[in-house]
């Protein structure tokens, strides 16, 4: 398959007054024509820097980025600008020109390249139809919802008939419903026009929804890459597992040191006290020891709980238990 974007040993170092930050530590990536390639990582992993290296909004400190076999680093400024017209980009905060109407926003990239105004307007009208906003041509961005703004941004991105569409957290400012609709639109564009799509996100659901391939970026390095099925079914790296289990594994790690001892004497064993407390306080507690018996419908015995680190929640839990007439005793340095 034809390679669209080839990234080789890309490093990016940001030098500030008193320290150096290595945002990318030798990235290698091959993105082929027609793929929807997801790059996923936690915030600060370097994914935004990486996507900006693909159109040289950020120049890599080292390494090469080739688009259709042409090295961006070897282009002069005019060539680079021409290359950029083929690499469209949409953003988390849409980045529309607030003082221009929707139609004029879509005309903007065509204006830059000197296309005739009448032609540009005609093309912009067609693009508005594709993104489903024909009736908003004369509106201004301030009058649109987030989803509508992103649709305008997509129409604007398509104005130059790009080969590549870079999406930098394009759905992160949108609600789940709108996110779905925008991703659907991006998929449609990918299939209809054969545009290669690169999606930067921190949400696994976005990758699952739309991507064919995925690369996981962690702390400036690619932890794993492959087709979405591969990475999902057999995540190898720690970073991948963390992202894949993002949704299933919501258990907080019990880091709290505070332990309490509860003594049951007169509570009805029919009341699930601990379960209710967890539901009430919306935070987990760790049962370190439980020795309770149901004697004639009354709970007898004791339990030792490890409370969450958040003192407010922990205090609320203790209060909840006291309110239920349980004896609560703080344990210092309990070793289970």
């Amino acid at each position: 398959m034809e390679t669209m974007i080839q990234v080789r040993d890309v490093r990016k170092v940001f030098t500030t007054k008193d320290n150096k930050v290595e945002a990318l530590k030798g990235i290698n990536l091959d993105i082929h024509k027609g793929e929807i390639y997801g790059i996923i990582g936690m915030s600060g992993a370097g994914k935004s820097t990486l996507v900006r290296c693909l159109n040289f909004l950020e120049r890599p400190t080292e390494g090469t980025v080739c688009i259709e076999g042409r090295d961006l680093a070897e282009m002069n400024e005019a060539e680079l600008r021409r290359a950029r017209t083929e690499i469209a980009m949409i953003f988390q905060h849409f980045n529309l020109l607030m003082q221009r109407s929707v139609l004029d926003n879509i005309c903007f990239p065509m204006e830059i390249t000197g296309r005739k105004k009448s032609e540009a307007r005609k093309k912009a009208q067609e693009l508005l139809k594709i993104v489903g906003l024909e009736e908003k041509a004369d509106a201004y961005p301030a009058q649109l919802s987030g989803g509508q703004k992103q649709r305008v941004a997509i129409a604007r991105a398509l104005a130059m008939d790009p080969k590549i569409l870079l999406c930098d957290e394009a759905t992160s400012a949108l609600d789940p419903q709108t996110t779905k609709a925008i991703l659907e639109l991006i998929r449609e564009i990918n299939q209809k026009y054969g545009i290669t799509v690169v999606i930067i996100t921190h949400e696994m659901t976005v990758v699952q929804e739309i991507c064919t391939h995925v690369a996981i970026i962690d702390n400036g390095e690619l932890a794993e890459q492959g087709t979405v099925e591969e990475v999902f079914s057999r995540p190898q790296s720690r970073a991948a597992r963390k992202l894949v289990f993002q949704n299933e594994n919501k258990y907080a790690v019990m880091a709290g040191k505070r332990c309490i001892r509860i003594v049951f004497k007169e509570n009805s064993s029919f009341e699930p006290v601990i379960g209710n407390m967890v539901l009430h306080c919306k935070a987990p507690a760790n049962i370190l020891l439980a020795d309770t018996k149901d004697i004639g419908g009354i709970a007898h015995g004791q339990m030792i709980l490890q409370l969450p680190e958040d003192t407010q929640i922990a205090d609320r839990m203790v209060q909840y238990l006291r309110d239920r007439n349980l004896t609560v005793e703080e344990l210092n340095d309990y070793v289970g």
Binding site: R81, R82, T85, A88, I112
Partner: peptide, 26 residues
């Protein structure tokens, strides 16, 4: 907004176009 300037750069706008059509207009 820096983002709008970045968007114009990503579309291949040159310095003058950014000054006239983005900075001064916005």
């Amino acid at each position: 907004d820096k983002g709008v300037i970045e968007a114009a750069q990503s579309m291949g706008a040159n310095l003058w176009q950014i000054i006239w059509k983005v900075l001064l207009a916005e």
